[in-house]
Amino acid sequence: MNTFQITFWFLSALAVFSSLMVITRKNPVYSVLFLIITFFAISGHYILMNAQFLAIVNIIVYAGAIMVLFLFVLMLMNLNKESEQQKNKYLLWSSGIAGGMLMIVLIAALDTPDPAIITKPGTGEIGLIKNLGTKLFTDYVVPFEISSILFLSAMVGAVVIGKKGD
């Protein structure tokens, strides 16, 4: 077992554990913090696959911006005193079983028996900023500009929806 494998298993266990914690914690603030840990673990996976640009973007955009937004909204709402009303117990069990069944079916369907298809960690140049930036500003410049319009409309929409009064 070399360093890459140890890191892979550690990051996988961390991601699965903290995403389980996200859906089981009662307090939503703990859920947000565990979701941040999950995002960091997934960023570690990106670094392991030498996708460094996406790892940095994942940390900055998800763990930095989106999760802070979630935390701010949670703290503005001050939900801690009234605990979340629980669902019917049978409904809870059946939805848990449904999620587990989905997992089993997907794993059984996607199980590739060919172990020769591997991703060699720490190799390849496609995830570096130079390659991705060149591709983004030559072949994908129109979707890039369209995404800026999407951001503008999302910003206007959020301001209009969140505005107080009338």
Binding site: V16, I23, L92, A98, G99, M103
Partner: peptide, 14 residues
């Protein structure tokens, strides 16, 4: 991870 997300959507009410 995807199935954990689906289970969370189905079980939580917040």
């Amino acid at each position: 991870i995807f199935s954990i997300g689906v289970t969370g959507v189905l079980t939580r009410r917040n």
